[in-house]
Design a protein around this nucleic acid. Structure first.
Lengths: 187, 187
DNA sequence: TCGTTCATTGAATCTGGATTCAATTTAACA
DNA sequence: TGTTAAATTGAATCCAGATTCAATGAACGA
């Protein structure tokens, strides 16, 4: 089955390359040709591995959904510490595992208007908010977080994180922010 | 000169319509046809007013640059209060002057990769950060804000604001966040 | 070694929109 | 009212990319 493994590896190669380009240049400005060139591989061959540019994006989203992404919150860990460590980990990924970081950014971007419907719906279907909402409620009960609608707070929190991560993705020069700052939105 | 005024008004009409659509659906997914239909006006006529879709975007950016946008910080007002009132104002604009709000969001979006170069460079040229940076330094001196690189802090602050505003722009249902939460990033 | 299947290429299509344009209508102004 | 510039239309054209495809090469099993 070396043949099949070979193919799977090539697929992965394309996915990773596309991920990087999509995040760096934006989906619409990344031509199939650009990805092919970066892999590298002929343009036509891209379609041997993925049915279309949209499919490629969709696959990335699916990959992102399988990933470690979610914020579940373990019992016994206080909510603020938990979110903090999540952010810390994500920032550290930015260094040694850029693809995890990029994936996070992409997942956020795909939800925005103007992105292909299928991928968009998929990405929007994972309600990443829910776990955070209950984490926030818990935090409020414990007096760790300030008052306010937990749902709105959760959205603000992630919207901020998304904004900051995108800033970082676009400008690798940018210094890493202190995760504490971001969690402060809830405190 | 009624003729000229008439034309200017029509131009404005197009700009406002485009602004709304660009923010709601995204630049790439908004076809010239969509704008024309929304104005309403024939497709061809659009090019009587603007040379191209990119020009239209560029004009919007120029308009945004003339606007009230900047955060200057008056002497005598403490930095945190100042930023707070800026956010409050922006949120209230979301209700009665959506175009101001949308413009703010657009200016942020245009800086991102994948947007037309000309508009992108233009929008990036206004260093909106500088005033905030000095505001932050001042705030730190007064002990209002926490320690940290002022530049990074400013970028995080605005990236968060941008993220949250986009969230609001996409989902008008969303409840308004308390501006205090956002300024908390700096405290 | 031979045939078969999968990988690969890149030039030729195809297509969604942006853009153009010749023709038509409108309305300011003499 | 006639003249003329400006507004307007929408169908035809153009073009950047995505997508297809016939041809070629490489590797595997019998």
């Amino acid at each position: 089955m070396t043949r099949k493994e070979q193919k799977e590896e090539r697929r992965q190669q394309i996915l990773l390359t596309a991920l990087e380009l999509f995040v760096k240049r934006g989906y619409h400005d990344t031509k199939i040709t650009d990805i092919a060139e970066a892999v590298p591989m002929s343009t036509g061959l891209m379609f041997h591995y993925f049915g279309s540019k949209e499919d490629l994006l969709t696959e990335l989203v699916k990959m992102g959904m399988r990933g470690p992404g979610s914020v579940e919150g373990k019992v016994g860990v206080s909510p603020d510490v938990y979110l903090l460590s999540f952010l810390k980990q994500m920032f550290s990924f930015a260094k040694d595992q850029p693809w995890v970081f990029n994936m996070f950014v992409l997942m956020g971007q795909v939800r925005r208007p103007g992105m292909p419907e299928e991928a968009r719906k998929l990405a929007s279907s994972v309600n990443a908010l829910a776990p955070t909402v209950s984490l926030i409620k818990k935090g409020q009960k414990e007096g760790l977080f300030h008052k306010g609608d937990p749902d709105t707070m959760a959205r603000c929190f992630w919207a901020s994180v998304q904004g900051i991560m995108e800033e970082m993705a676009v400008d690798p020069e940018m210094k890493y922010p202190d995760p504490e700052w971001i969690v402060a939105i809830l405190k």
